[in-house]
């Protein structure tokens, strides 16, 4: 069952297209990562989904709900830099957010209490927000996004501003969150995406260049990767000349005397490469076979 369906979403700022026709659906109890380099348009997409920006064209629909325009009540949103009323205490703000989300006073109080435990802010709930640290603000931000039990949680860079311990905790929290709602979070840190998300959307220059479940992406990019370092640049040029036209080499990236080859048939590639090196008497420094990480997939997708 899909929670949100996005079709041909476009956005321009001052005639500069920033999002160039993006379509996807998000399912229930799935955690989806929106991955892309800085400036790819991640924040813009999240803001459009949250209703803060109006799309230039395209549609955003919540299929299971009657379409009466205001879909804000289905959404919990954490901006990249959450801002609060500094003069409130954490508890006051969270209860305020809950009441704005449609909870009664009593429900908001109970739910706020729960969430303080969930996000680990129990100690600080009676402190003024002006006294909160960056990590505490991030947690309060996540709590306020969840308070009215939204169907879809939109989190803009939820872990980028946190220290390693805080990151661990928030990533753990994301695992739990998807039991309650669909989660879409943006990040430029691929490890984070790989760790917690079921699906990944690769965004590059305002377009989704690759998308799918982690399993499907792994399947698709099951090719192996061979990292090779030779004695000097000249040797590498020679070597490239010899092997670049072989059919098992899908693509390669050269960087001075080092190169990365993406190959289909590892066994064959290994034999051919090593034989070539021996026959030409090339000074071998490093030869490493590995599976593609998400980062390699990403680099590949972005460069193509």
């Amino acid at each position: 069952m899909s929670v949100i369906r996005v079709e041909a979403l476009k956005k321009s700022f001052k005639n500069q297209p920033v999002i160039k026709g993006v379509s996807f659906t998000l399912g229930e109890n799935r955690c989806t990562a929106l991955v892309g380099p800085n400036g790819a348009g991640k924040t813009t997409i999240l803001r459009m989904l949250s209703g803060l920006l109006k799309p230039s064209s395209g549609t955003i629909t919540f299929p299971e709900t009657s379409n009466n325009g205001d879909f804000r009540k289905f959404i919990g949103y954490l901006p990249q830099h959450p801002v609060f009323y500094e003069w409130m205490t954490g508890k006051e703000f969270l209860e305020y957010a809950g009441k704005l989300g449609g909870l009664t006073k009593e429900e908001a109080a109970v739910r706020a209490e729960e969430l303080f435990e969930t996000v680990g802010l129990g100690e600080a709930k009676k402190k003024r927000i002006s006294k909160y640290s960056g990590g505490m603000r991030q947690r309060l931000g996540i709590a306020q996004a969840m308070i009215h039990r939204p169907r879809l949680l939109l989190l803009d860079e939820p872990v980028s501003a946190l220290d390693p311990i805080g990151r661990r905790e928030v990533l753990g929290l994301l695992e739990n969150l998807k039991k309650m709602s669909a989660v879409l979070f943006s990040t430029h840190i691929l490890n984070d995406a790989e760790e917690v998300s079921d699906e990944i959307l690769f965004l590059h220059k305002g377009e989704i260049v690759e998308a799918g479940t982690m399993a499907r992406l792994r399947e698709k990019y099951r090719q192996a990767k061979i990292d090779l370092t030779l004695g000097n640049v000249k040797d590498m040029e020679l070597f490239i000349e010899q092997v670049s036209n072989k059919d098992f080499v899908q693509s390669f990236l050269v960087n001075g005397n080092a190169a990365t080859f993406f190959v289909e048939n590892v066994e064959e590639a290994k034999t051919v490469f090593l034989r070539e090196i021996l026959e030409q008497h090339l000074p071998l420094i490093k030869f490493e076979i590995s599976k593609m990480s998400l980062e390699d997939v990403f680099m590949k997708v972005v460069r193509s």
Binding site: S50, G51, L52, D70, R72, K73, I75, Y77, P79, H81, P82, V83, F84, Y85, A97, L100, G101, G102, Q144, H148
Partner: peptide, 13 residues
Amino acid sequence: KSGVAAMILVKPV
């Protein structure tokens, strides 16, 4: 300007 309006107005207000 501070951005808190965005925090409030993504709620169904």
